[in-house]
Design a protein around this nucleic acid. Structure first.
Lengths: 110, 110
DNA sequence: GGAACATATGAACACGTGTTCATAGGTTAC
DNA sequence: GTAACCTATGAACACGTGTTCATATGTTCC
């Protein structure tokens, strides 16, 4: 179904988005390019921490960086990333099917 | 844009899928319910490891469990999870836009 | 040139977590 | 009942990683 490389690549992407601060950074870039300072103040994180995270996100091609003057603006890398994120976020709003949390019987068992 | 709870919840989900073995387990369940033993032998992981991961995935409502005889079958929890996963996997196949990896100029800068 | 601002980088630390080993719990067949 | 099978659980450990602090790099304005 999935090759090992595909699995590792996909997992790596998930892993990066699996950290709340990093996810916040990426999510905040959905509206449009943001400078490091803007992200820092908007999320209330330290400048150093934001920069470290940005490096990882940029290396993984989730974000891309563009300099304008002395500031550097980060934005969603491409259409794919944007699509995936908006898809995931859409799913947050939709209703949840509520199954039992324990083990349940699966169909017929004669 | 996103509440703190939404962010944490989404990140938690990403975090779980961010581990290759766990992602493999979930992905293998896309075809249909699989017993623990089936997953174990299919992925070549230890039974204990698979069980530990399954507990996390079940707790996060990514997978659901159903007993049939002495075996317990795990399957994708609901339509949402299935949709998200298939969406992500679809994006793997589609072409990538290739941008520079470093910092690039962003539009006009007089 | 230098000062002020914006971002990046490196080291160090605390903490979570993926894995293994051994063992327990539960289910069917005899 | 017991034996054989399947799954879950707990402890222990090695390892990665998120965060902070201090410092370096780079850019604009004087």
């Amino acid at each position: 179904m999935l090759t090992v490389d595909q699995t590792n690549g996909l997992a790596e992407m998930f892993r990066l988005l699996g950290e709340p601060n990093r996810l916040s950074i990426v999510a905040s870039c959905l509206d449009g390019p943001l400078s490091v300072g803007a992200i820092t103040s908007r999320l209330g994180l330290s400048q150093s921490l934001v920069s470290h995270h940005l490096r990882l996100l940029r290396a993984a091609r989730l974000l891309k960086a563009g300099r304008r003057g002395k500031r550097i603006f980060y934005s969603i890398a491409d259409w794919h990333v944007r699509e995936m994120l908006t898809n995931m976020i859409e799913h947050l709003a939709e209703p949840h099917e509520h199954d039992e949390e324990g083990i349940m019987e699966t169909g017929a068992n004669p």
